[in-house]
Design a protein around this nucleic acid. Structure first.
Length: 426
RNA sequence: GGAGAAAUACCCAAGUGGCUGAAGGGGCAGGCUUGGAAAGCUUGUAGGUCCUUAACCGGGCGCGAGGGUUCAAAUCCCUCUUUCUCCGCCA
């Protein structure tokens, strides 16, 4: 949520920044409503103060033996006089709130405007691998090795799913273990979340109201709950409605969860296999920081996510996203994109974002500043570290051998019980 | 799913209609004491948010949430949420 005061004070700047995201907005009505709200509030509070004062004088008047009926009726009249205004005020506040909840976050000023086409690769690690043989894509490799079963997944679930089997499942789990062990080493707190979340959590994270239809809703719960689309949604709500001790920040968390996403029609034909599905595994990092800490912590998260891909020995690049390609709730995002040889493209395996105080305002996540003792909105940041559904294809393709086997990246060998090559499964 | 109990500030907890925004205790901060600490003694400390103000002051809201009754609600009524106990079912 954006700060109403900021919109008031620097209307043109806000409009211009939102335009960089491709979002056009007119604040005229909002500013008028805000003005009206203030006037109403002033009126209502003044009358209330008067009524409160009169009421408070009753016990004294009673003791003195004075007539209190006069006071009663006086207060009654006062209260009645503002009834209509109070309702108007409430309605107006709701209207303003709802308007603000629909607005995307402001992009950072240094971002290029426009969409994907203006993303900028700011770091490239490794080089595109060359193969002295005809390469297979990850779907063929996985099926040849018998480690991923698409057919039976369709049978027991439906389209948009897959089953990891045998060494495939072990590889997936080895990755998750590797990621989590790295985060533990760095002092992040491990969290296991509920996967069923309530509406408020989606609202705070910024998914709702705008993207209500992109998640899976469970009709049976009352009120309806949804399956988490990313652990970020859970982690970023951990401290909703709390005032944190500023000297304890940043707080650093990670969680492994499957992520459930309803992305109807977004499946693209060139993306064979498990690049995109209804469910995938991910380890997510979330930080709560003080305002001044968030730029440095953003870089820490980018470095952390990058180091995982680097330790896996994969060729990848880091992209600084243009304003329009950053998601709705985020002020800036760097993507880590891993190379997929069969498609000759780079695919996102991690998205590192700084929401600044956007989510914190929605969820009233605050901290007490250790020096000024003032209450401020926290900054929230998140990073996937990492999503396995794109790392596994990258490993299968970048580490494939001439005979169709796949070498296991060195860092995963201990997590695979010493196995160094995945051969054909029986 | 059924029955019952509860929700008060950082924590415990008193409070059943009006000088109670909230007793008491713990905690926390300072001082005394001590070689240093603990203990003991002592002083201090009550949040949040909105409006107004340069600031002080002042004011609205506020005792799980939302409504209602009343001149007046932590206190009475209704709805909801959460937690606990017991019963049932269950991985």
């Amino acid at each position: 949520m954006l700060d109403l005061q900021l919109i008031k004070d620097q209307t043109q700047k806000v409009v211009a920044l939102l335009a960089k995201k491709g979002f056009t907005v007119n604040f005229d009505d909002l500013l008028k409503d805000a003005q009206l709200r203030k006037q109403l509030l002033l009126d209502v509070e003044q009358v209330k103060a008067e009524a409160n004062k009169l009421s408070a004088s009753v016990p004294e008047a009673k003791k003195a033996g004075r007539d209190v009926q006069a006071i009663f009726s006086q207060v009654k009249v006062l209260n009645q006089s503002i009834q209509g205004k109070e309702q108007e005020l409430k309605a107006l506040e709701l209207k303003i709130e709802n308007f603000l909840l629909e607005l995307p976050n402001l992009p950072d000023e240094d971002l290029k405007e426009g969409g994907k086409e203006n993303n900028e690769a700011i770091r490239i690690v490794g080089k595109q691998p060359s193969f002295p043989f005809k390469i297979k894509d990850h779907v063929d490799i996985a099926e040849h090795l018998g480690i991923i079963d698409y057919q039976r997944a369709a049978k027991i679930s439906g389209a948009g799913t897959w089953i990891y089997r045998g060494l495939g499942a072990q590889l997936e789990w080895a990755l998750l273990n590797f990621f989590m062990s790295e985060h533990l080493k760095d002092g992040y707190e491990m969290v296991l979340l509920p996967h069923l979340l309530n509406y408020e959590s989606g609202l705070t994270a910024g998914q709702f109201p705008k993207f209500k239809d992109d998640v899976f809703w469970l009709k049976k719960t009352e009120p309806e709950k949804f399956l988490l689309p990313t652990a970020e949604t859970g982690l970023v709500n951990l401290h909703r409605d709390e005032i944190l001790d500023g000297s304890q920040l940043p707080k650093k968390y990670f969680a492994y969860t499957p992520c459930y996403r309803y992305e109807a029609g977004s499946y693209r034909s060139e993306e064979r296999g498990m690049i995109r599905g209804y469910q995938f595994n991910k380890v997510e990092l979330v930080q709560y920081t003080r305002e001044e800490q968030s730029p440095a912590m953003f870089l820490e998260l980018v470095a952390k996510a990058s180091s995982l891909v680097e330790k896996l020995g994969l060729h990848f690049r880091v992209s600084k996203l243009a304003a329009g390609d950053c998601s709705h709730s985020m002020a800036r995002t760097h993507d880590i994109e891993v190379y997929i040889p069969s498609l000759n493209i780079y695919k996102e395996v991690s998205s590192v974002s700084n929401a600044r105080d956007y989510q914190a305002r929605r969820g009233k996540i605050r901290y007490k500043d250790p020096t000024t003792q003032k209450t401020k909105f926290a900054h929230t940041l998140n990073a996937s570290a990492l999503a396995t559904s794109r790392i596994v294809p990258a490993i299968l393709e970048q580490y494939q051998l001439a005979n169709g086997d796949v070498k296991i990246p060195d860092v995963l060998v201990p997590w695979m019980g010493g196995l160094t090559v995945i051969g054909k499964q029986k």
